[in-house]
Design a protein around this nucleic acid. Structure first.
Lengths: 340, 340
DNA sequence: TTGGTATGTCTAAACGATTAAGCATACATT
DNA sequence: AATGTATGCTTAATCGTTTAGACATACCAA
């Protein structure tokens, strides 16, 4: 059952060729020839032979011995979602700067998948995790934390679990967005959110509610919840209901990129006039927001910063830091024509 | 220098607790209790203790011993590009089905970065590669192939290197797109492509040229080349020049998603009327194509199929297959309003 | 009794690197 | 001559698995 590929060159091969022990080869190839007092000619010879034999160190063996893999496990909701794709890219670059490689997995917001992913990555002895946690994976995160596995949560976190996180100032972002709609004269403002107990959603909802209340519009609060695995159908239904004659809304606030885009498809299909019939504010970024016939005002997240901070915090944790980082980043409200 | 984390439970710990050798534990936990004739009560006890101690096998140790890591190395141009993000997602799912985990890296179309990535992944002893090769990394791919490392190239390949690939029928796709423009009455059709010798670009260009020639329009061939690291500026300049009075084009064909979107921004900014002043066909998919004021006709790639096929071919290679797969998938021309 | 077969378990090497500790030798110092 | 110290290299254990092969015991058949 042992794999038979072209036999890779090992330290031993070099050692034999040069006529020394593997220890010397290891010292030299790790740049410890000074401390370990390796003879000058031997150093040169080892270097030469290593290059000539095309030696590539076996990171697996090294990892086993050192108990460190120089690998980061990344769990996102869906790598195909541009928000997470962009974040993954930043994380990749930043991790590389520190000598880490990234292994990733998509959870589809499913706690079961998340669990499996985390276990797989644990098997593989990743040195730490960056996780976009899903609803219901509290225990899984708690287990990691209890085992002192370095973990940084991003985009969301669990208030009852003490661990590092890097998130957006979601409530404030939402508050500003909705306040902006109100300033522009909208009163019947509806919101479309994921049906999720996760804190990022809850905070965005809370920000909406607070902005409404702060302006005496608490009676106008209308929130529709969409299931993650049924975005299109649920979003269409939500908008249809909210724009039906009767309790008609005059503006709509979307809780994230997927919802916004689903909404835009519906709005286009039904020729709803933006901003005359309906003011809009979206969340996250998308080219769709730029090319929609009436460019959207949206809440922009600092994805780059989020990714970078996550890696920085994680690397510190891996290096033994004990202090817990709770980072809340600021949004930016990009104002355009979708709310006059 | 040895890492001190919470000590993970090992086979030995279980063996000691149960009072047997590690061999038995290994057999049982790998489901070989029948073949290896392990006593019935011992089997139960090992299972119980393993569960109770929360045992997680060390994949690193197993990999070292077996010479197999159950890991696939994925090198794309940029994981943040939705085309590659979508592909990564498919590859992830398909790889998981076969018990593989995916390690990824972005090359930015840079052969140097590609080289470093491949070396890093080699260190980590991945069982095989799925690579979107960059210009100039011929040697790097050749080296892998020579060492009998399982490799599948996607999106593009090197005609002079014998190895597996899964690509689009690029020339045909381009040919059909441009023919469609011609059918619709356009004659002065320009193309915007990457300045790249890679086959996918060359084939898309060739398809364009052939369609032009097939319709006696060879004198009208106008191609502008854009640098990967300067897309916005170069694309703007290209369109400006092509639409300047004098040798004015009446339609434009973009060679991929990034170029299309850069072009659309320029077109919007300059109020160019689509399709009246300029017919358009894009390549790849994007929500931008749907929300652009005049929905774009575009060449759709079967990303899912491409990802799946790549994994399937790779797994076969890893399992020892010697036959080389050259797979060309069919595009789909999605016809909408941007070319009347 | 002898040998054969079945059953159950263990030993120890191997994967490839790292690294503490030990062994030689040469040279300088008193 | 005795001791110290610098230099240069080797030995062997270790990380956590896997697995071929040895070993031990029981039972049955001839």
């Amino acid at each position: 059952m042992i794999k038979k590929r072209i036999k890779r060159v090992s330290l031993k091969d070099i050692a034999e060729k040069v006529g020394v022990s593997t220890a010397l080869v290891s010292y030299v190839l790790n740049g410890q020839e000074k401390e370990k007092r390796v003879g000058a000619e031997v150093v040169l010879k080892i270097r030469k032979v290593a290059k000539q034999m095309n030696y590539v160190p076996n990171q697996i063996a090294r990892s086993l011995r050192k108990g460190v893999t120089k690998t980061i496990g990344l769990v996102v909701a869906d790598i195909a979602n541009p928000f997470f794709g962009a974040m993954a890219r930043i994380i990749e670059d930043e991790a590389n700067r520190f000598g880490y490689t990234v292994v990733f997995g998509s959870s589809d917001e499913d706690s079961n998948k998340s669990n499996i992913l985390v276990d797989t990555l644990l098997n593989r002895q990743v040195d730490g995790f960056i996780i976009v946690p899903s609803e219901g994976c509290n225990d899984c995160i708690r287990k990691l934390v209890k085992n002192e596995m370095p973990v940084v949560l991003v985009d969301r976190y669990f208030p009852d679990i003490i661990t590092n996180y890097v998130v957006l100032n979601n409530r404030g972002a939402s508050f500003e967005a909705v306040s902006h709609l109100i300033e522009k004269g909208f009163r019947q403002i509806g919101m479309i959110a994921y049906r999720s107990t996760m804190i990022h959603m809850q905070e965005r909802i809370r920000g909406y509610e607070e902005a409404m209340r702060a302006n005496g519009l608490e009676k106008n609060i209308r929130i529709k919840y969409v299931r993650y695995d049924n975005v299109n159908v649920d979003t269409e239904k939500a908008i249809r209901e909210m724009t039906a004659r009767g309790a008609k809304i005059d503006a709509l606030f979307f809780a994230n990129n997927t919802l916004s885009i689903a909404g835009l498809y519906y709005i286009n299909k039904n020729n709803i006039k933006i901003p005359e019939s309906l003011g809009l504010i979206a969340f996250d970024e998308s080219e769709a927001f730029d090319f929609f016939y009436c460019p959207l005002t949206y809440v922009k997240q600092p994805v780059d910063e989020m990714g970078k901070e996550a890696v920085n915090v994680l690397v510190e944790q891996i290096n033994g830091s004990k202090k817990i980082a709770h980072i809340e980043l600021m949004h930016q409200l990009v104002k355009r024509q979708s709310c006059r």
